[in-house]
Design a protein around this nucleic acid. Sequence first.
DNA 1: AATTCGTGGGC
DNA 2: TGCCCAAGAAT
Length: 359
Amino acid sequence: MEGSVINIDKKQFQNDLIDWFHTEKRDLPWRRTADPYQIWISEIMLQQTRVDTVIPYYKRFVEKFPTLHDLAMADEEVLLKQWEGLGYYSRARNLQAGVREVAEKYGGKVPGSRKEILALKGVGPYTAGAVLSIAYGLPEHAVDGNVMRVLSRILLIDEDIAKPKTRKVFEEAVTALISHEDPSAFNQGLMELGALVCTPTSPKCLLCPVREHCAAFNEGRQHELPVKTKAKTNKGVNYAMVAIRSGESLLMEKRPSTGLLANMWQFPLLEIAESIGAPGVEERLSEQFKGTVEKAEKITSFKHVFSHLTWNVDGFIAKGVNLEIPENMKWVNAAEMDLLPISGPVQKMKTALTSRGDA
DNA sequence: AATTCGTGGGC
DNA sequence: TGCCCAAGAAT
């Protein structure tokens, strides 16, 4: 399998791929900059996230934080608000941690060695190679899902790409194949090919610029690759989400700094065994806040699917009187709430409130 | 090595 | 509807 690398006319393969990339590449915002900091941002946002989704976020982000220094100085809540809706929120906090490290240790210049950039928070093997090749023109491998799919077909590699150790096989393949004249176009070309032509289902082989190099195509086996075992099923959790009102204010709660939706804000959330009614909500919250939560009313019910779990949420509205609230909660008015970073489930709750005229 | 981390789109 | 997926990293 790795032996397949030597069966490729490397120079011809590089030329075919790179020529195609320069001709057919999409005009993406992060391809209009040479700033390593901005390229870094794009690579973080693109992790497990579609190009079309990232584009508007990237534009707003670089406008809000044009330089590495701007992001280093930013308030985390403002940062998370910019990231709201993009998902995987630890990416944003890790990015800022990495940026601050660059500001302190490297005088604000993104380091240009794999060892140094790999040590930055949120930067793994893929992102390190991507920034080094795209921003600095270095012949470093950048193996993502696209690259594994494309090369599994071209080189007829049938190892399970869901297994962590398999990535190394592809890193070695890229190291052997990468163009030293244009590493950036080579790496981006592999990914662009995966996105536009060598797609997971229905690969457009007749449009492929490197099909004559492709072992899978030559054997008619492109649909068999890549080999990828499937993930586990996700579990469900039941919650009561409660918008507690006092005058013109609503009670909001900041989530813990680790784990799911870290540091994001939400309406107070009760984990429940089964669906509980409004009386149950009043009882549990009154006890929790050592006050009175009354006039609870269910206003919505929805499901929110995460990667590995599902929230089944019953949404309530209620009134709070003389509540003792903990450190991680605060009363906010409508304008203040708009500044808080919130996740998908809270967004759904907010929509239910708004359509009802209660927020 | 296996889990944990979001979201929206496609079929 | 349910499942898979999309420029992965941290634990």
